[in-house]
């Protein structure tokens, strides 16, 4: 069976629960530390977990993109391997240029950790099968406010690159449901091809029977489905 690589930069801190959540859904996963970029070629898909790569001291993901393993991640994306970046992983993917737009500081200028709901959109990505569902997941970030220029956003919409928006539990996408000031409540996006997705909420923290929901399973299951 094919293996999923869980990328660990120095300062990544969600790698263990990410690996565990993939295994809970029957997948094989291994942690790939930044100093072993060659391992990226051996795996079928990549999960870039959250944390503070290189401390996020310069800007989230800014240093990670300059690394050797960063080059390997871009190669894997070009090869069409499914890639899921969560939280800091999402930020790294935007810095690598694999996803459009940027994640800027929350409008509150504070770290926000709480449970939110997202509405899954119709998209061109491997989360398409979840379109129309509302999922309740935790967020935990300081820079999670999605930003994009107006024209580029229009293009993304045309290409169906918007994957998820912050919503009420009912699924209604309202300003009140927006926790961090993201443009149009955007919580997750895909690249044009649909094999690379970035999400701010954490599916790997909504898996176990003792978690508040197990909605993360659906996202991870769809991610696993995408591996041929």
């Amino acid at each position: 069976m094919s293996t999923i690589g869980v990328i660990r930069f120095p300062g990544t801190n969600n790698e263990l629960e990410t690996k565990r959540s993939l295994e809970r859904l029957g997948a094989q996963a291994k942690i790939i530390p930044h100093f072993k970029p060659e391992l990226v070629r051996e795996v079928a898909a990549l999960y870039l977990p959250g944390g503070f790569s290189y401390g996020d001291y310069l800007r989230p993901g800014a240093v990670a993109k300059t690394t050797e393993i960063g080059i390997e991640i871009v190669r894997a994306a070009d090869e069409g391997k499914p890639i899921l970046g969560v939280c800091n992983g999402f930020q790294v993917l935007t810095e690598l240029g694999l996803l459009p737009g940027a994640l800027v500081k929350n409008t509150s200028t504070r770290f926000i950790a709480k449970w939110i709901s997202i509405w899954i959109e119709r998209s061109n990505s491997y989360l398409e099968d979840l379109a129309g569902t509302t999922l309740s997941l935790p967020i935990a970030h300081y820079s999670g406010s999605y930003y994009q220029t107006k024209d580029a956003l229009e293009q993304m919409k045309q290409k169906q690159q918007i994957v998820a928006r912050y919503s009420l539990t009912s699924g209604d996408v309202t300003p009140h449901a927006n926790p961090n000031g993201s443009l149009e409540n955007i919580a997750g996006i895909a690249n044009k091809v649909g094999n690379v997705i970035g999400l701010m909420p954490h599916p790997e923290r909504a898996i176990e029977p003792f978690h508040r929901t197990q909605h993360g399973k659906q996202i991870i299951a769809s991610f696993l489905e995408a591996i041929k």
Partner: peptide, 16 residues
């Protein structure tokens, strides 16, 4: 206060 603390990281938190 506690919404500024990541209380779900590591994925083991049962009661927040």
């Amino acid at each position: 206060v506690y919404q500024q603390y990541d209380h779900t990281v590591q994925g083991n938190t049962v009661l927040e």
